[in-house]
Amino acid sequence: MKIAVAQINTKLGDVEANVEKCLQFSLKAKEEGAELVVFPELSLTGYNLQDLTFEVALTPQSPELIPLLEVSREVAIVVGLIEESPEHVFYNSAFYLEGGRVKHVHRKVYLPTYGMFDEGRFTGHGEEVKVFESKLGKSSILICEDLWHFSTVYLAFIQGVKYIIALSASPGRGYKERGMFGNAEVWLNMGEFYSRLTGSYFIYSNRVGVEDGFVFSGKSFVCDPYGRVVAQASPFKEEILTVEIQPALIRSARANLPLLRDERPLTTLKNLRRIVDEG
């Protein structure tokens, strides 16, 4: 089975233009034989939305999504957008579209609000990390800062995740690496580390392009369950990475390193309770 990672640029605040771009990339992914295509964080809106947050928000029923829902009958799609809840809380979310329906929603749990980031000012935080059945199998979607908190990956892990789908719009910073920004190197480290320790595929879709001098760092990649980088995109260009997924490798990795079997969530829970109770 093939999957595609679509590394794209977006137009800030222009949902229609971004839907059109995602549509074109989805069709291309389908042509290349992919069953699933993963777009970056906020791929339908652009990243530094600030007050635009309230002007670009969508719901699973929004007509703007129809073109993508139609294509999702042929290729499943993960896209990022601002979701407006029935209570009018705005979330930085990712939708999983398959068979013409929104089948899973992940709301970003950790909202960076420090330094150059100001997400907590505009969006509410999600409360759940779930595993769902994608076309690939047991999958979890996590968004950018979620991954910098290993608790989210742990929660996916103990639910038996096999495919960690990571979306980001990571602004480049740091000039101490070769051929990429410092943050891109950290993402690569995370992908290698998390995939190895969870015995899962780690599918990372990051943005390219510039918003007011924030240069998104690209270098999207896929890691296999042995922590090996099997495909990697460039730092600046829009492109599609198509990767043949080998489920047998998940079995192989977990037979060799049975961390999931030996994991003790109740011990973790007991400790968490104690730590919380002790204040």
């Binding site: 137009k11 800030l12 600030q50 007050d51 635009l52 510039v210 918003e211 007011d212």
Partner: peptide, 11 residues
């Protein structure tokens, strides 16, 4: 102060 949009709004 609180009319917050990037310059690249819509670009």
């Amino acid at each position: 102060k609180d009319f917050l949009y990037l310059r690249d709004w819509g670009l």
